[in-house]
């Protein structure tokens, strides 16, 4: 393109060789640098603003859990965490907090009481009560259910869980799910008035 003739192209020929090349380079560098930086800004903008490192959330008084007891905790994101107490030393290591997210491809496992195992419906993954994979893809790969860090402060138990939520204005903190009767906003599931199917005409 340098040899494109132009009517007012009139630099001194001797300078033209080196400086001409340099000016080409400077122009290319300026354009790449400027617009490249703008591109980088755009890329950074699209990447999540800050990583969700989670936050410490209160779970329960230590006294609530005896050795061998477990409770279910619902993280702000909706995930269920099983927290089991194994010892009575009053430290975080007494407890394990098992995520319900399958390490294989991220589906939610559920506890099968009859088989005493966690089961993942996506690819038939099976975990024992300690979260160790025993069958299916996680068993083959030797994966376990992820554990969340726990902290004991005084006589209170805290857990560090991700806080990102699917629905923007949902509640911002986690809560313990009552094992016998899951308590949720709205009607108390313990008090289901129609345990039997309604008879004809009963519901109008």
């Amino acid at each position: 393109m340098a040899d494109d003739s132009s009517h007012d192209d009139g630099p001194v020929q001797g300078r033209r060789g080196f400086l001409g090349q340099a000016s080409n380079f400077a122009m290319a560098a300026g354009l790449v640098g400027g617009y490249g930086a703008f591109g980088a800004v755009a890329a950074r903008y699209l990447y999540p603003a800050r990583p969700d490192t989670g936050s410490w959330q209160f779970v329960a008084d230590l006294a609530r859990l005896g050795v061998g007891d477990s409770l279910r905790y619902q993280a702000p994101g909706g995930e269920t965490v099983n927290i089991t107490r194994r010892a009575r030393d009053g430290v975080a290591e007494d407890f394990i907090a098992l995520s319900s997210t399958c390490p294989h491809l991220g589906c939610q496992v559920h506890w099968e009481d009859a088989n005493q195992r966690y089961f993942c419906p996506c690819h038939n993954g099976v975990f024992d009560s300690a979260g160790v994979g025993t069958a299916g893809p996680p068993g083959d790969a030797g994966q376990t259910l992820p554990r969340y860090p726990l902290r004991v402060d005084g006589n209170l138990l805290f857990i560090r869980v991700p806080t990102a939520r699917l629905v923007a204005d949902a509640a911002s903190s986690g809560r313990v799910i009552d094992d016998d009767c899951a308590s949720a906003p709205g009607h108390d599931p313990c008090l289901s008035p129609l345990a039997r199917p309604p008879r004809d005409g009963e519901l109008g």
Binding site: V41, A42, R44, Y45, Y47, A49
Partner: peptide, 9 residues
Amino acid sequence: EEAAFGWYL
């Protein structure tokens, strides 16, 4: 306020 460079864009 939150997204990186969002205010700029």
